[in-house]
């Protein structure tokens, strides 16, 4: 599995959440069952997200990217793979594989900034930038290591 497929899975975030046509209150079926996966769901605990066969009902196929006004940008060069951001991300938006942090899932990230706050490196390997700013520009202007005040 290449790292590219983990970062950009073809089922993730393909629809804007709430973009589908609304049904009236009397048209909603009673006792609805929403299957999370197409076919058998056995063994999904051993599959990475990009290997799973998500059904259209799964919110994995939706995106909330439009909620964001600021976004976290990830700098691989400084990261120590401590996984603090992974454990505390409320939106399952930190992509980690084989104990390595790969990047941010911008389809599900809401830009809360918790990952930046819990990042222990100096300078931080995650920083918040304006949503409109390009990631390359953000990385080019990354701050230098802060020296301890004497």
């Amino acid at each position: 599995m290449s790292t590219g497929s983990a970062l950009a899975s073809n089922k993730r975030g393909i629809r804007e959440l709430g973009a589908e046509e609304m049904v009236g209150w009397d048209e909603v079926q009673q006792g609805v069952v929403l299957p999370s996966f197409e076919g058998d769901a056995a063994g999904i605990v051993n599959m990475h997200a990009e290997e799973r066969n998500y059904a259209d009902f799964n919110s994995y196929t939706a995106t909330v990217a439009s909620w964001r006004v600021i976004k976290p940008v990830y700098n691989r060069d400084i990261c120590i793979d401590c996984q603090n951001c992974w454990v505390w991300c409320p939106d399952t938006s930190i992509i980690s594989r084989d104990k390595q942090m790969l990047g941010i899932d911008y389809d599900h990230c809401k830009g809360c900034g918790v990952c930046v706050e819990v990042c222990p490196t100096n300078p931080k390997s995650l920083l918040m930038f304006n949503e409109a700013e390009e990631n390359d520009e953000a990385l080019a202007g990354w701050p230098q290591k802060e020296k301890k005040a004497k």
Binding site: G18, L34, S36, A62
Partner: peptide, 8 residues
Amino acid sequence: VYPYTSWD
């Protein structure tokens, strides 16, 4: 939120 579920 109908028609979505976040639970696997």
